[in-house]
């Protein structure tokens, strides 16, 4: 276990380094951010002064070296545009994103597991076919379109839920959260549904496919023979053995939603980190892009690690080496 963690740690450092190099190389092609900061009528001296203020007056190599050495001291660089530490910008927006992503994932699991198990256990029934057809729709619906339709119907026409934005927030262990009040929770519902649909459909299909396989196995027949209840067979013997692929995909989807909930956040004017990434690309704000993508890479490494540990917990035959 210890050796495994060391190996993972080294992998992580390599991945993070590669991401930082990639972003620096890519950003050196996208034009000089100074021109976005200075007025169009700026003179050469004013531009030189702006470059000095932004730390862009040196070669890319020197800038990269400075970035690395600062990072070694825990300084991740400062946004050109916001003039604030890049990491702070990400961390102050993170709770809002985590909130909708966790709710969306909970929603997806809550719906996907029973439906998937049902469809997998009774593959021939018309209801199962309907569930499967529905999941195809869920996968193919673009999130932004669904979001717009939900806003139009639920918020504008029916006036049941607010159309956009985050509701009132309260401090909770130093984090700003909105699910603690009813009004805040109401604001969460539509973005969470929008975000969950695609994931829900994929998870459901995976559970169904695995369940179909598992239900053919001999141990299911034995369980039936020994007189286990139908529910026990489905969830204890069936679902538990179908979980491994589900956990893998769940982990990847979770990381994906946190990092790239951009479209949903933009549609619902949700103050999360996804919008920060898009805006920063748009403004050529390299320090934020670098730290953001490194943060995402780190998150995926951690999620994968947790998934590996979960394997061992679910299936005792798997050993972490």
């Amino acid at each position: 276990m210890f050796g495994y963690m060391i190996k993972r740690l080294i992998q992580m450092v390599v991945v993070l380094w590669a991401v930082s190099v990639l972003v620096f190389v890519m950003m050196s092609f996208t034009g000089d951010p100074t021109f976005m900061m200075v007025p169009l009528d700026a003179t050469d001296e004013q531009i030189a002064q702006a470059r000095r203020i932004l730390g862009l007056d040196e070669s890319h190599l020197v800038q990269y070296w400075r970035f690395l050495s600062n990072m070694a001291q825990g300084d991740f660089g400062r946004s050109f545009v916001f003039r604030q530490p890049a990491l702070t910008l990400i961390l102050e927006r993170l709770p809002a994103t985590l909130e909708i992503v966790f709710l969306a994932m909970a929603l997806a699991l809550l719906v996907a597991i029973p439906l998937g198990v049902y469809a997998g256990a009774n593959p021939g029934k018309p209801a199962s076919r309907a569930v499967m057809a529905g999941s195809l729709v869920g996968i193919s619906l673009p999130g932004f379109w669904l979001g717009m339709v939900l806003i139009f119907i639920v918020a504008v026409k029916l006036q049941w839920l607010p159309s956009s934005g985050r509701g009132p927030t309260t401090e909770w262990f130093g984090l700003r959260v909105s699910f603690t009040s009813w009004e805040g929770f109401r604001h969460l519902i539509l973005p969470a549904i929008t975000l969950s649909i695609g994931t829900l459909a994929i998870l459901m299909r995976i559970i169904r496919a695995e369940m179909v396989e598992v239900m053919k196995q001999d141990y299911i027949k034995f369980a039936r023979a020994k007189g286990a209840t139908a529910k026990g067979i489905l969830f204890k013997h069936g679902l538990k053995n179908a979980l491994i692929p589900l956990v893998t995909v769940f982990g990847l989807m979770l990381g994906d939603l946190i990092a790239f909930a951009t479209l949903t956040e933009t549609i619902f004017a949700w103050p999360g980190i996804g919008k920060l990434l898009v805006d920063s690309i748009y403004r050529g704000d390299r320090p934020v892009i670098v730290v953001y993508l490194m943060f995402v890479a780190l998150m995926f490494v951690v999620v994968n690690f947790v998934v590996d540990v979960a394997y061992a917990l679910i299936d005792p035959r798997i050993k972490i080496k």
Binding site: I151, Q159, P162, S163, S164, G165, T266, F268, A269, K275
Partner: peptide, 18 residues
């Protein structure tokens, strides 16, 4: 002041009284 980038969402926010 609230930032609402998406134009359709901005209109919806006005129509719903947000």
């Amino acid at each position: 002041f609230k930032p609402i980038t998406n134009p359709a969402t901005r209109t919806a926010a006005l129509l719903t009284g947000g």
